[in-house]
Structure formats: C-alpha cells, structure tokens
Nucleic acid binder design. Sequence first.
DNA 1: TATGTCAAGTCCCATATGGGACTATTATTT
DNA 2: AAATAATAGTCCCATATGGGACTTGACATA
Lengths: 160, 160
Amino acid sequence: MDDILSKSTTANTGEVLEENAIGALWQICFVANSFVFPIYAQFDKEYEISRMEFVVLFVLSHRDCLMAWEICRMTGLPKNNISRGIQKLETKGLISRSPDPKDARRAMVTTTEKGHILFDKLLAAYTKRADGFLSLLDENDKADLDRIMVKLSKFMPTIA
Amino acid sequence: MDDILSKSTTANTGEVLEENAIGALWQICFVANSFVFPIYAQFDKEYEISRMEFVVLFVLSHRDCLMAWEICRMTGLPKNNISRGIQKLETKGLISRSPDPKDARRAMVTTTEKGHILFDKLLAAYTKRADGFLSLLDENDKADLDRIMVKLSKFMPTIA
DNA sequence: TATGTCAAGTCCCATATGGGACTATTATTT
DNA sequence: AAATAATAGTCCCATATGGGACTTGACATA
C-alpha cells in the first residue's frame, strides 16, 4: 500500500467546495471571507476603522438616518457590536446621534460631514476590491448573481 | 420640514444591498453570515464543536488526510486558528495526527471513526440548513450559483 | 560541514466578538 | 392607575480571533 502521504493530493484553494448543493453555501462563505478579511484589515491599518464601524457607515450611506436596531436588522449583526461601532464613530465625530423626542430609548444615527469624507475613501477601496472579484464574471453572471442573492437574502435569521 | 425621524423608512433585512455591483459582494457576505452563525452556535451548543473544529472536519471529509497548511489554504483561515482546531479535535479523539517520516515538521491529519460518526451528525444539520437556504432557488438559480461561485473562488487571497 | 533561508506549526498577547444580564423607557393588559 | 410585558440600548464577561514572534526542521549554497 502507498505511503499515507500519497493520499494527499495537493489541494487548491476552494477546490473542495465544487461538489454539491452543500458546497454552494460553503463556497459563499468562503468567498465572503476571502473578500472581507483583507478589506477590514486594510481599513484598520490605514484608517483605524473597525469592521463594525465600517458596517455602520456603510448602512448609513444608504439611508439618511437610522436607529441602532435597524442597523442590526439590516446587517444581521448583534446589537452590542453595533452599539460599540456607533459609540466609536460618535467619539470620532464621524456620526452623530439625536435622541428621539417621542421615545427616549431611541436615537437616530446620522453620518456627519467628516464621516462622509472618510466613508468616501473607504468605499473607494471597498469598490475597488469588489470590482476585482466581480471582474471574474461576465455580464450574465453578474445579473444572475444579483438575482440569486436577492432571493437568498430573504431567508432571514433572527439574531439578537 | 419633516421630523428627522420620518427620514427613516422601516428598512427590511438585506434591503440595503439590492443596488449595484458593490451590493453583490455585500450581499454575499450577508448571506454567508446569516447562514453560518446560527449553525456554528448550534454546533457549539449541541456538540461543543467550535467553528474551527467543524471547518477542519469538513475539509477532511473531502480528503482522506491533509496537512494543516493544506487546510489553511483550502479554507483561507489563518494557521494558528487551524492549529487550535486540530489540537482540540485530537484531544477529543476525533482526528489523529501521524507525523511525516520524511519531514518532521509536518503531520498528516486524519478523521478517526469517532470523528466520522460525529461529523455525520454535524453534516446532517449543516445540509438541512443549506437546503433551507437553497430552497429559495429554482434549479436554474442553483446551477447559476454553482457556476458563479466556482468562478469567484478563483480570486484567491493569500492569508498567513 | 557551516550558514543562511525557508517552511510547518505552536505560542503569546491584544483585540473582537457574542451571549446574557441589566437599565431605562414605552406599550399593553387588568 | 398599577402591574406586566416588551423594546432600545449598554455593560460585563468569557471566549474566539488574528498578527506576529518563536521553535524546530529541511533545504540550498558555499
């Protein structure tokens, strides 16, 4: 019988995953991690912005103002993490919080001008990287991907 | 002018993301997190298996035996994390390590019988959840998704 | 054989993370 | 109105994570 070592074919990255239905979701996670880790490392290094801070800014860039719990729902991230992200951003003057006069528990979060300026830089880096990934796809692929991801996003978790 | 609060449309989960090319990758990450967090929480609660342990078992289920650095490359995860996962699994008797006689730095990792038995349960839960997600897609979608994810997986990072 | 370089894993440490308890406020029920 | 539940957000704490230093061993070159 062969040496035990010979059983190991030199596996390439992501290779494992190209198999069945289960593989599709594994691969989604794999691609997501591959995309997101280097970007967040870059944000941290270049701008001292953490993942949670970026997430808050990103979501806010699509709505003028939001409450923390809305950001949680939109991102699927736990509220304590979002809370911390918001606190950091506020400390840095990148967002501002205005308490809801009708409900003292709530506060609306808005990006400040300073926050917009920084976010533009972050988004440029983000977009550049995203384009790098998507450049592997043709136009049909991109359309399919959009359609599929919209469908999949409907399957929502309820994260505390 | 309207109350500041009225600016906030009640945003639904994942809604932000359905916009442009940048949104596609955001959405991939969103779906990935939505899929993966509850499953790992379940694994931790029901089987006391951590994410890293599952990842190692998962990858090993596709290859008879592998070395740690191969698992890193296939998963894109840092080697210290994988190292810890392997250590835990070995302690529990779910995998075994046989040192490479030709290179004392290396060790081949193999799933034990006990490991296989546990992994079957984990995989059943994983598959069930994956099927839940994928049930939102029709057959064309699934085929498209597979094709696209294989393409995207080629855009590989080099993670330490 | 000495020497420098690289590779596989492990270890240490500072930070990020998520669960759950807690506070403060509002909504609902009686 | 009082009592109870529910909600937004924060805090605490134990664990997970990733960067980087370190150890050990292999390999290339002299």
